[in-house]
Every structure is written in structure tokens, then in C-alpha cells.
Design a protein around this nucleic acid. Structure first.
Lengths: 240, 240
DNA sequence: TAGCACCTATAGCGTTGCTATATGAAGTGG
DNA sequence: CCACTTCATATAGCAACGCTATAGGTGCTA
């Protein structure tokens, strides 16, 4: 019944919930199962976690630490987009090795209530994409790119989880991954910024933007705005 | 209470379930609600549909007809990939206008049991992509392309459903859609992009500069200047 | 020792999906 | 016309669910 009588109930609840979530094959996990395995009664659960979802969120946070650790642990390769690729793979891997945990984290969709985890995963991706943006490697704002890539990543992972194990084809993942990354990347040498992507900085980007703006009159700013904008740009680009 | 006393109970149950699914805002739909609205008692439901999921499946079959009708109805434009684009949009639209029905169809993920609907939707997409393949417009086998695109499509739709209505940004959809379609297509849209490479490089440079500025707090501009500068930058970088 | 905050248990509420059993209606063969 | 089966619906209730009002126990500080 109760396992680990030494530990405080809060932790026993967390472990029991995690264990049941990991081992439950398909069927749902009830609070009674959890409290019984933890050797605790119902009110204890609600005292510590508010409600069932609160407990699951807490379990997920722990699982998410693991997930994030996987996302962060590998040393940055210096190639941000390569790192994004690895984050994608890590995401899928996490979903396939811990499908039930993953489903609680990402699969528990209801209208107008998105899992707290999604925002975190999005932030992680955005952070990495920001590096790519600084290096002039993407042609979309990092936030939008992150949202888009994450949506596809989740979609692929859910698809793979839903498939029978023997039919799972990871090529679905790699293909979709590369499609998404390629689509937001400047990889195929489009602009000046992409040329000196290696040594990018505020200055390089400013110079590139300066050149690009003067080459093609953007109609996003009025002429007076543009004048001031260019002056600031000049100030920034001549700062080194 | 009971609505439509004339019709046979089986149909009343279907209609009641469909109506409740469509109107229930967030919360789950219980068999008691359904049977009450249908003016029928519980055993009737189980006699006709086996269990709750059987009833939902039946409702979904009907909803799916509607969905498929939407997918098929527009005349082929002669541009298969354009049709794929419309199928994507139709898919998202269906998900957003009937979120609960959609969640029953696509969101009810459990390990190794995929909703029957997914296979049908995949087949529909594949059919269209096959036309594109015949026209030499894609560089990936239609089946794999369909799976990949559908996964992203579902992921995006689930993301959008999970977001608060006022925050929903359909650009997430169009962006992901175009990324996926472009990635499988042989169309050299990148070359086409090079035509207005001036604007395009402005956007790239602006995105890079934006990211770089926020990463390294440049002291070349005062905070008020920087604020305005960033706003202009945003305006430029979010111009299509 | 008194008081207080924190933690846990007893017991039970209301709701859920589902069913054992019985009743009514409709057709069929003698 | 009457049994007899078959189908469809209702009565009543079970076990499990998430959750909670209330109270008792525990350890700390005054």
C-alpha cells in the first residue's frame, strides 16, 4: 500500500502520482488510487495541491525539469538552428518515452485553457531562436517562429504517441522538423545579414539594416520617421 | 426539456449530444445532460450506442461528414497545392468554430489508439497531394507529406483552441501552413523571394537587430529613444 | 501551560458512467 | 385469439469519481 513511510506526505503524493501516471496504460488515474498508494487520505491531497490538476501540474513540473534539463544540457553547438533541431528531437523523445506524462502536459487541451507548460516550452524555444535571430539566421520574429515550431512539434509528437508502437515512423518527425526550421531560416543566403552570419552583433545587424533600408524604401515608416530612424541606426552602428 | 418528441429516441440522442457538445463551454458533457435533453433515460442510450464514447463517435461521424463536405466542396482550383492550403484553413476553421467536436475528433489522444478520424483526414489530404505529385509539384511522397502536414495542422489547431479567444492569432496558422507546404513543394519560392530581396533583407536585418538590441542593452540610445526605435523596428520586421 | 498555525483524518456530498431487472409494445405462428 | 419471442424503454441503484465541511492531532512560540 503505502510506500516510503518516511517521507512527508506531499512528496509521497508526488511520487505516487508520478508512478501511477507513468504506469497507467491508457486508463485514467484517480485521486483515490493516488492517495491510497501514497498512504494518505483525500484532504491531504487537496490541502497541498488544491485539486487534482494542481497535483498533476506539480508532477508535471518535476517531469518538466527533466525535460528542460534535456533541452538545456547539451552544450550550445554555436549553431542555434542546430540546437533548435535538437530541442525538437528531445521534445519528441520525451513524449515517446513518457507518453502519459506528456499527455498530461501537452495533450490535455480544453478550449481557452492552455497547459501552463506550453508557455514555458515556448519560452525555451524562443530563447534559442532569439540567438538564431541575432545571428541573422531566421526571417521571422523569434516569438512567432517559436509558436509555430512548437505547435508542429506538439502535433507530431501527439500523432506519434497515438500510433501503434510498431508503426511509429520517426521520419515524420525529422521531416516536419526540417520543414519548419527550413521555412523560418535564411539558410539559403537571402540577404546581407545572412552573409556575415558568423560574426553577428548589434552593429552588424544595424549595418545590414541600414544598407537594406536605403536600398529599398520601406513604406512602413513615414519619411520623417525614417530619417530619425536612420540616424539612430547610424549611431548604433558606429558605436564600436 | 425534451425537444422533438416526434423523432425516434436514437436520433433525439444524437441531436441532443451534438447540441450539448457544440454549446458546452469548457466543461464536459455528461450522459445525464444528454438523456435529459433528449427526453430519454439512461438505458436507452446504452442500448443504442453501447457507451458514451459510442454515442460521441456517432455524433462525430455526422460532424465529420460536415467536415469532409467542407473539404471537398470547393471546386479544385487546378492548383493542388492551393487546394491543400484551403484544406488546411478549412481544418483550422472547423476546429475553431466547433472546438468541442474537434477535441472529441482529434484531441482525444491516448497511447496507441488513434482516433478513427485521423486516418480519414489523412487520406483526404493525401488524395489532394497525389494530384500535386502527378503535376510534379512536390518533392516528397504524398503519404509522408500528408502525415506531416496533418500533424502540423492538428498541432496548430489545438494550440489555437487552447488559447483565449481574444489572443488567437491566425497568423500562427498561415505561417505554419505555408512553411509546411513550401517545404514539400518543388516550387522555388525562395527564388521568387529574391525578386524583392531588398524588402526581404530589410526584414531579416530588422529581426536580427531587434533581437540583438534586446539581448545587449545598448547605451547608444536613451530609453525613450530605444522604446520608439524598437517600435519602428517591430513595424518593419512584421511587415510581410 | 496556553495559544496558534499547520497538517491530516473521518465521513459524506453530489455527480459521474453504467447496468440488473422489469415493463410495455409489436410482430409471428399456432 | 392466444401464447411467444423480440425489441425498446423505464425504474432503481451500484461503484467510482472529484471534492469538502468539520474536527482532531501535532509541533512551535510566548
Amino acid at each position: 500500500m503505502s510506500f516510503d513511510d518516511q517521507l512527508p506526505p506531499k512528496i509521497r503524493l508526488l511520487r505516487a502520482a508520478a508512478e501511477l501516471l507513468a504506469n497507467s496504460e491508457g486508463s485514467a488515474v484517480s485521486t483515490r488510487q493516488i492517495t491510497k498508494l501514497a498512504g494518505v487520505t483525500a484532504p491531504t491531497l487537496y490541502h497541498h495541491f488544491g485539486d487534482k490538476e494542481g497535483l498533476f501540474d506539480a508532477v508535471v513540473s518535476a517531469g518538466f525539469e527533466e525535460y528542460v534539463a534535456g533541452e538545456r544540457d547539451f552544450a550550445p553547438s554555436g549553431e542555434p538552428l542546430e540546437d533548435v533541431r535538437r530541442m525538437w528531437d528531445n521534445h519528441v523523445q520525451f513524449g515517446l518515452t513518457q507518453p502519459h506524462l506528456y499527455l498530461v502536459m501537452f495533450g490535455n487541451i480544453r478550449p481557452e485553457s492552455r497547459p501552463a507548460i506550453v508557455a514555458d516550452a515556448e519560452a525555451l524555444l524562443e530563447e534559442m531562436l532569439n540567438k538564431a535571430a541575432i545571428a541573422g539566421q531566421i526571417n521571422v520574429p523569434p516569438r512567432e517562429a517559436a509558436r509555430s515550431i512548437l505547435a508542429a512539434n506538439v502535433g507530431v509528437t501527439l500523432m506519434l504517441i497515438a500510433e501503434p508502437v510498431e508503426e511509429r515512423n520517426l521520419e515524420l518527425s525529422t521531416m516536419t522538423r526540417d520543414s519548419m526550421i527550413f521555412a523560418v531560416s535564411t539558410e539559403t543566403a537571402r540577404g546581407a545579414a545572412a552573409d556575415d552570419s558568423g560574426k553577428s552583433s548589434v552593429v552588424v545587424a544595424a549595418i545590414a539594416l541600414n544598407a537594406a533600408l536605403q536600398a529599398s524604401h520601406s513604406d512602413q515608416l513615414s519619411s520623417s520617421e525614417l530619417k530619425l530612424f536612420l540616424e539612430w541606426l547610424h549611431r548604433i552602428s558606429s558605436s564600436s
